[in-house]
Amino acid sequence: MHTVAMRAFAALALGLGAVTLPVLAEDPKPKPSNWSGYVFVADVVGEVVKADDKSVTLRITWFEAQNGNNRNSRPRLSQNNRNFRNPYSQNMNRPNQSRTQLKEQHHDYELEYVPESLVRVKTLPVKLDDKGKKVPHDQKEINELRAPGGFPGYAANRSDLTPGTIVEVHLIRDKSVPAAKAGEDDLRVKYAVILGRDPNPPKDIGSGDKDKKKDEKKKN
Rank of each mutant, 00 (worst) to 15 (best):
D129A: 08
L187F: 09
G153R: 01
N200Q: 12
E141H: 00
T162L: 13
I172G: 03
V167I: 08
V189A: 00
K190S: 06
K190R: 09
V193C: 13
P152L: 01
V169A: 01
R197D: 05
D186N: 10
P178N: 05
I172A: 07
A155Q: 12
G164T: 01
D204Y: 13
V169P: 05
N143C: 09
F151S: 03
V135F: 01
T162M: 13
D174G: 05
T162F: 12
I194L: 00
H137W: 14
Y154E: 00
K140G: 02
P148G: 09
N143W: 10
L128H: 14
K133A: 14
H170W: 12
V169R: 00
D160F: 05
L195N: 04
V193K: 07
E144N: 11
V167A: 06
Y154M: 07
K133V: 13
T165G: 04
A147Q: 11
P148Q: 04
R188S: 14
P199Q: 03
R158N: 14
K175N: 15
K127P: 10
G149I: 00
R146K: 15
F151G: 08
V189H: 00
Y191I: 02
L161I: 06
L161G: 03
N143G: 09
L195D: 03
G196M: 11
A180C: 11
N200S: 14
D198Q: 08
N157M: 11
D138G: 09
T165N: 07
A147S: 12
K134W: 07
A147K: 08
L128G: 11
H137Y: 06
A180E: 15
E184W: 14
A147R: 10
A180H: 11
A180Q: 14
L195E: 08
R158S: 08
S159W: 12
T165H: 06
V177L: 03
F151E: 04
K181P: 10
L128T: 14
N143D: 13
P136S: 10
D186K: 06
D185A: 15
T162Y: 07
P136V: 09
V193T: 15
A156F: 01
I142L: 02
I166Q: 04
G183I: 00
K140H: 12
Y154P: 01
E184A: 04
E144A: 08
F151K: 00
Y154C: 03
S159M: 12
K133P: 10
P202Q: 06
R188Q: 15
Y154K: 09
V167Y: 05
V193R: 13
P148C: 08
S176Q: 13
G132W: 05
A156G: 02
R197L: 05
K175D: 11
Y191N: 05
P199N: 03
A179G: 12
A182Q: 10
